[in-house]
């Protein structure tokens, strides 16, 4: 039985694809069979973040339209044996993504024995975003501690609780989690950024992870290596914790406190 997890946010640029890639890698590193699917038709990017952009032959829409078999479109990750990528179509129109087509592909992935299917949602609330969440069992809502991102996340939470298969069936709905990215403990301490507790209180949801703002995210995407695989960085550890929590482990939240500063730095706000 495959579990379908949508990574969504409403607002663009908050770290959905980075998060999808890292969660997929984190699960695969624990031996889970994982497929990560790019729903951003026309703006394919997951392949770049995963570092497999030159191996895309067939894509999601090709599979839906029967141009190829699912197996031909799945790209096997070179680092992790149990991880596969399904790229978004780059050229065709967005109408190509159909309800029935998406359902069929997800069912086929489950039949292939994938335990987790990670759906990387496009920004916005249009068809791609709708279909990315429609069949989900769980949702990871990626949010920056910033007003427009928090408001858009709330809008997405409203859609998750009404416009999804689970909501329509009335069997408990989609299980929702918050994941904060670009978090800066220093700015929170200075009162310039909302805290984890603030965002949690406004949206009324549990937080599955807090990823600190870090230059490592850009260097990882430059290299095509999902940031969770990036050695000893805080970001990597934060995503690793988030994956553990998704799997039901209870861990204390790290990287949300500012490192202690010296007397002079505190006196003069350095």
């Amino acid at each position: 039985m495959a579990e379908i997890i949508v990574v969504t946010s409403g607002k663009g640029g908050v770290g959905k694809t980075t998060t999808s890639a890292s969660i997929a890698c984190g699960l695969a590193r624990r031996g889970k069979r994982v497929a990560v699917v790019d729903f951003d038709i026309g703006l394919r990017n997951l392949d770049l973040i995963m570092g497999c952009e030159r191996r895309v032959v067939y894509d999601f829409v090709n599979v839906i339209q029967g141009d190829c078999a699912l197996k031909q479109a799945l790209i096997k990750d070179r680092r992790l044996d149990t991880l596969y990528v399904l790229a978004a179509s780059q050229t065709r129109d967005k109408e190509a993504l159909t309800d029935e087509g998406v359902r069929r592909v997800l069912e086929e992935l489950a039949a292939e024995g994938f335990e987790y299917i990670i759906c990387d949602s496009p920004a916005g609330i249009e068809r791609g975003a709708h279909l990315a969440m429609y069949f989900a069992d769980r949702a990871v809502v990626v949010v920056n501690p910033e007003v427009s991102s928090v408001r858009d996340s709330d809008r997405i939470l409203g859609l998750l609780s009404s416009k999804t298969l689970r909501a329509e069936q009335g069997n408990g709905g989609v299980k929702e989690h918050l994941l904060l990215t670009r978090y800066s403990p220093r700015r929170v301490a200075n009162g310039e950024m909302m805290s984890v507790a603030d965002v949690k209180e406004i949206l009324g949801l549990d937080v599955v992870g807090v990823v600190p703002e870090s230059p490592d995210v850009l260097s990882a995407s430059n290299a095509g290596v999902p940031v969770i695989l990036n050695g000893e960085s805080d970001v990597s550890a934060a995503y690793e914790d988030a994956v553990a929590r998704l799997l039901g482990e209870t861990l204390p939240m790290r990287f949300i406190e500012e490192p202690k500063r010296g007397f002079f730095a505190r006196m003069f706000g350095g």
């Binding site: 928090v150 929170v188 301490a189 310039e192 603030d198 406004i202 505190r266």
Partner: peptide
């Protein structure tokens, strides 16, 4: 927080953000 901030009375921008969001999210 520096020495000068000690005398500042205006609410932090994070608190302003939180209050604005609390209202608009409840309304929506």
């Amino acid at each position: 927080m520096g020495l000068l901030d000690f005398f500042r009375k205006t609410p932090s921008s994070a608190n302003v953000a939180k209050e604005r969001l609390r209202i608009i999210v409840a309304q929506e």
